[in-house]
Design a protein around this nucleic acid. Structure first.
Length: 122
DNA sequence: AAGATGACTAACT
DNA sequence: AAGTTAGCCATCT
């Protein structure tokens, strides 16, 4: 049979992805978080790249709001003229996220500010 | 199986 | 302002 140690490693790896997916699922509509932040919230500080990997490998079934994750500069990490980049921007704009050129104000659209926006408006 | 890659980022030039 | 470097590490070649 497959070695136990191999199984354990696979499991903890799954575990990391699961935690990342959970964090992403928790991003409210109209908000964005950057990769590093998602990693931190998932208990994986310094592993922003892992978040990108986890999103790429997320099961379709899960229907994650993957578009709410952008990079630390507030920019979409796909080329602006790419199909994926345009789709992500469209999804964000459809739920009220505003761009200044190519850039989103991360402070303004952070989940923490979501309640403020509800109470006081944008 | 070693080396490149990348949905990243902070810290330096 | 813009490019480079170092750290990251599972996946892909």
């Amino acid at each position: 049979m497959a070695s136990a140690s191999q199984r354990v490693e696979d499991h903890s790896q799954e575990e990391r992805f699961r935690r990342i997916w959970e964090v992403v699922e928790g991003i409210p509509e109209g908000c964005v978080l950057n990769y590093g932040e998602v990693a931190r919230l998932a208990g994986l500080p310094g592993r922003a790249r892992l978040v990108g990997r986890a999103l790429a490998r997320a099961p379709k079934k899960r229907a994650l709001p993957w578009h709410r994750v952008v990079n630390a500069q507030g920019r979409i990490s796909f080329a602006a003229d790419s199909v994926r980049g345009q789709r992500q921007r469209r999804l964000l704009e459809d739920e009220g996220v505003e761009f200044d050129g190519e850039v989103i104000d991360l402070e303004r659209f952070s989940p923490e500010r979501a309640i403020d926006r509800l109470l006081w408006g944008p």
